[in-house]
Design a protein around this nucleic acid. Structure first.
Lengths: 236, 236
DNA sequence: TTTATAAACGTAAATTTAACGTTTATAAAT
DNA sequence: ATTTATAAACGTTAAATTTACGTTTATAAA
């Protein structure tokens, strides 16, 4: 099959298409942003750390493939999942020509099925302790973090990384981890409360202080209403 | 070939991979942001308007493919070209399974080779007068405009759409076209000059007023220096 | 009763944004 | 020669936001 719309000689030769998933989780105890990685069992790169990926199936969209492996490794569905970038350099895979469509996702660490992670020889790595990764996966992690930072600046995506009930100090530490820089806690508190998207609860979390920190919930319905109205928030 | 890293049965079946290009140009006379489209000569969708695309070749990256057809249709290289999104829904092409990696590019309309556009039965369409397009290409144009708006808010990409010497009224009208809303001209002028990225020339453009408007040039070297220093601009 | 500490609350200066009005240069009309 | 029309260029001020801090509170443990 030749594409006659193009004057230079062009062929339509199928290429292997994979997805890779940068799965972010926030460890509330350690106050660390982490990424799920797994140790490859098969060649190429058996024994090396890698993002979680799969080939896109003939009757499957890329996002469906990404979602499929996310569920397989975490037991979760209905998760924040967004396309990152398509990586297509010719030399990226030493064996075959494979392009990879990378996705990033935000999950609640407490909700995922840890036995699935173990079963797949996978593990969570703090964002500043990522080991060497196969091919361009390190690049993907870096790009995903940049994209997450950009996204978090304008959209309340942080809540996808926290349990449904969380405290302001937890939210604050999460944003510091995402932006990878210190934030003024008083200004952060004011700004995040000013959005009107948080519902304060009566209960407190006393695990990290004597005084205890009030629980909050993210008001997703209110946010969705704002979003349809073209509401413009800047979080940082 | 079966991917044993994944427990469910997964095959590695190659897929046709295309690129499609949303090529933006700014018509200084008409003060309109335009997109380059062409009328398909071959099936599927012969006779329908389409973005300019091609299959990714076996030894070619996606960005190289995008750049190749951009050059073929405009005669330009060394152009602003950025990945937009990879579209991969199963039903998007009625004949084969084809995924498409979309790119968007910004060119100087005055510099391109118009005879190439004619030769390919292509033409420039104002952003608000785009005809019906094949498959998901209308979606791509919309997504590209959103991305351009986002990009233009934080990076001085508008200059890629103007001749090297331009006037402030031209720049102002370009940004109004990109954002698709009226902007206060006095605030715009102040903000854009405050970046320090514009060099005022002695000469004037008298085509659109008696008084004439001073020519300016974009100081790219200064911008690149700023960018490496993590300089943060907001244009709108 | 005191102490230590995370959590919560508060304030004021500096900066930025938004919304306007005014002056200037010049060709064309009178 | 003078007036007129008009795009281009310049200027001002109030409101809103951001930044950079200091202070108070609740509570368990000493």
């Amino acid at each position: 099959m030749i594409d006659e719309n193009i004057s230079t000689y062009v062929v339509a030769e199928p290429i292997l298409v994979a997805v890779d998933n940068v799965i972010f989780g926030f460890d509330v105890e350690e106050e660390k942003l982490k990424v799920l990685l797994f140790k490859r069992k098969i060649e190429p790169f058996a024994g090396h750390w890698s993002l979680i990926g799969s080939f896109v199936q003939p009757h499957e969209s890329a996002v469906a493939a990404s979602s499929r492996i996310l569920t397989e490794f975490t037991g979760l569905d209905d998760v924040f999942l967004e396309q990152l970038h398509c990586y297509s350099s010719v030399e990226r895979d030493p064996e075959d020509r494979v392009i990879s469509i990378a996705y990033y996702s935000l999950i609640q660490l407490g909700n995922h099925r840890k036995e699935l992670v173990e079963k797949h020889h996978a593990g969570w790595f703090a964002i500043d302790e990522i080991p060497g990764l196969v091919v361009d996966h390190k690049q993907m992690v870096g790009d995903a973090l940049s994209k997450l930072q950009e996204k978090a600046r304008r959209r309340p995506v942080g809540f996808n990384l926290l349990p449904s009930k969380f405290t302001l100090p937890q939210l604050f530490k999460l944003y510091q981890e995402i932006y990878r820089q210190p934030i003024d806690d008083r200004n952060f508190r004011k700004k995040i409360l000013a959005t009107g998207l948080l519902t304060k609860l009566e209960t407190k979390d006393k695990t990290s202080s004597k005084k205890g920190a009030f629980h909050y919930q993210f008001n997703k319905a209110k946010y969705l209403k704002f979003e349809t109205e073209g509401y413009d928030i800047v979080f940082h």
